[in-house]
Simulated assay, not measured.
Amino acid sequence: MKYTLLGTAKTRAFRPLWLLEELEVDYEHQPVGPRSDEVRRASPLGKVPVLLADDRAIPDSAAILQFLADRHGAFTFAAGTVERAKQDAWTFRILDELDALLWTAARHSFILPEPARVPAIKDSLKSEFAENLSRITDDIAGPYLLGETMTVPDILLCHCGGWARAAKFPDPPEAFKDYTRTLRAREAYKRASALP
């Protein structure tokens, strides 16, 4: 299968870039921005990332991650198992309790037209994020979310941690820092981090 990943590593495109590196599959990376001509040709949403799999577009980082994991039988539990249900629950929890808050803060920082921005909302988002991350950290089985097996939601959670740091959200618990250090030490993470 031929893969092309659209999006710069400084966006949510980092997530599938990291997984592609973990899987050690051949792919082309086009470090283009949201709403660029290349992205709009692939997906009318205009958002990154977009994965072209045999020239068919798959938008959304979480969907791309799970597609790649399922396709290659790695970083995921099998569909229809209780373990997969628990994995999916983690994915949805991270997207709901962390990613959505970070995205809303970004929208009110630089994405929405200036008259539509409400900068004061960010204090509330940061407070809620900190509470959610504390509870999530308490539930990490260790060394990965579901124990000994690294899965898709580990990539999501680690990326949200880095995004929060860049967005100047509150410092995470020490146990969360330890968890992300383990993930950031992986060679695939380092290779993805070096991409444009």
Rank of each mutant, 00 (worst) to 15 (best):
D123Y: 06
T149D: 06
F77H: 14
D96K: 13
D88L: 13
D96S: 14
L51D: 06
R40I: 13
L145R: 09
D99R: 07
P119F: 11
A105S: 14
A141Q: 15
P49Y: 07
L157R: 08
L145V: 07
A120M: 10
V50K: 10
A85V: 10
F92N: 09
D70R: 15
E97L: 09
A69D: 05
K47I: 04
F75T: 08
G46E: 04
V48R: 04
D96W: 03
R41G: 08
F75D: 05
D99W: 04
E38Y: 03
G73D: 08
E114V: 15
A74R: 15
A74K: 15
P31N: 11
T151G: 05
I121D: 05
D123W: 04
V50G: 10
D55E: 15
F110G: 14
D88K: 09
S127W: 05
I64W: 03
R84S: 05
W103H: 12
T104R: 15
V50W: 03
A74I: 05
R35F: 11
S61P: 01
P153N: 11
D139R: 14
A100Y: 02
F75R: 11
T149A: 13
A105H: 07
K122N: 14
A57F: 02
I140T: 09
T149L: 06
K86Q: 08
W103C: 07
D138K: 14
E148I: 04
T104S: 13
D99A: 14
Y144C: 06
I64H: 04
A63L: 12
S124I: 10
W103F: 10
E83T: 08
F110W: 13
F75I: 04
G142I: 03
D96F: 02
T91H: 02
R135S: 09
Q66A: 06
A120G: 10
F67S: 10
L101A: 11
A116V: 04
G33M: 12
P31L: 11
V50H: 08
A57K: 08
S36L: 07
R71K: 15
D139A: 15
H72W: 06
I94D: 02
G142Q: 13
A78I: 04
L52M: 13
A106H: 08
T76F: 00
F67K: 10
C158N: 09
A62L: 04
